[in-house]
């Protein structure tokens, strides 16, 4: 019978990404509830040395395939390796990151393993010995409880939502043969964006601007506040469609659906498709001149005022507080 809670570790440039520790901690919790092992699959190049680190976050056993073909990530190499080790060991539950990489890999695994998956989950638990996954649908306009009846039960975890918990386990490392066949895709080039830029999908704090910003040059005041807070700068569809900001910064139903600890909406009226994309944020601040703007219905803290005065003042206050 299938058993064990598995994770697919996500690496970038030879190091684990934070979401990997979130998955490991979550796998530990689920494994304890089931009385089973938590295992990890690590596919990378030159990673044997760091694989054991996952023991710190509750992983009992780490299956490692060390091969130059895994870096940078390609769908075929990773999907082949993960599907093989998961199948050989008859895993019951498999957690994957709902990151750009995970969103490419996980559905390919669903196809290879002929199973089902709950995408982009914000909560997972065990009910009647099976995985029960909770996830936003319609960009968060409603939620679904997903049950996967096939094996393994796959769930993709939204980054930045699940807590990291340390609990020392063996983290015993075992190498496996990924059995790579012909690889049909390759990465020709990795074009890095500006160093230190935080993606809105992974930010703890997002400072977002909309039509009320009036022009691309005015986003400088949001950049400055974001710099002080260690935040990412997001944008509404109106701001992106006007060409003021990059498409990758768009928050909403046709952009990224985000759930940071703090979302500061500046000059965003709150179209329903925008609200859908950010209303699962822990705290929401709205700065808008129009007291009737729908964004205030979602805001924990509302400031009815001119954002061009409030935002620079807030930047100064935060500088003072954060030293």
């Amino acid at each position: 019978m299938a058993k064990g809670v598995w994770i697919v570790a996500e690496l970038r440039d030879g190091a684990f990404r934070k979401v990997t520790f979130e998955m490991a901690s979550t796998a530990r919790k689920l494994a304890d509830q089931l009385g089973e092992e938590a295992c990890a699959v690590v596919c990378g190049s030159g990673v044997a040395g760091i694989a054991g680190e996952l023991g710190k976050y509750g992983i009992d056993k780490v299956y490692v395939a060390d091969n130059a073909a895994f870096e940078p990530y390609t769908t075929d190499a990773h999907a082949a390796a993960v599907a093989k080790v998961v199948k050989d060991n008859d895993a019951a539950i498999l957690l994957v990151a709902a990151s750009f990489q995970g969103k490419d890999l996980a559905p390919r695994l669903v196809g290879k393993l002929a199973t089902g998956m709950a995408s982009d989950c914000t909560d997972v638990k065990i009910a009647d010995g099976k995985l029960l996954a909770i996830r936003p649908m319609y960009a968060g306009k409603c939620f679904g409880e997903i049950v996967v009846s096939a094996t393994p039960q796959i769930a993709a975890l939204r980054p930045n939502v699940f807590p990291i918990v340390e609990s020392a386990k063996a983290g015993a490392v075992e190498a496996f043969d990924p059995g790579l066949g012909e690889l049909k895709t390759k990465v020709l080039e990795v074009q890095k964006e500006q160093a230190g830029k935080i993606d809105v999908s992974e930010a703890n704090i997002i400072v977002s601007g909309g039509r009320g910003m009036k022009g691309p040059e005015n986003f400088a005041i949001l950049e400055e506040l974001a710099g002080v807070l260690g935040a990412a700068v997001g944008a509404s569809r109106a701001a992106v469609d006007a060409g003021w900001r990059a498409q990758s910064d768009q928050v909403g139903q046709t952009g990224k659906v985000v759930s940071p600890n703090l979302y500061i909406a500046c000059g965003i009226s709150g179209a329903i498709q925008h609200l859908a994309g950010m209303s699962s944020s822990k705290y929401i601040v709205a700065v808008n001149k129009d007291p009737e703007a729908p964004i205030f219905q979602k805001a924990d803290y509302g400031l009815v005022d001119d954002l061009f005065k409030v935002v620079p003042a807030l930047t100064q206050e935060c500088k003072k507080l954060l030293g």
Binding site: C142, F143, S149, Y301, G302
Partner: peptide, 25 residues
Amino acid sequence: KSKVAKMIPPPARPPGKILCADDTP
């Protein structure tokens, strides 16, 4: 292979505050 066992409305957000202790920005 999987199903949506149940759909639920999003959790209601507690009512927010409009900040006005001081009327300046």
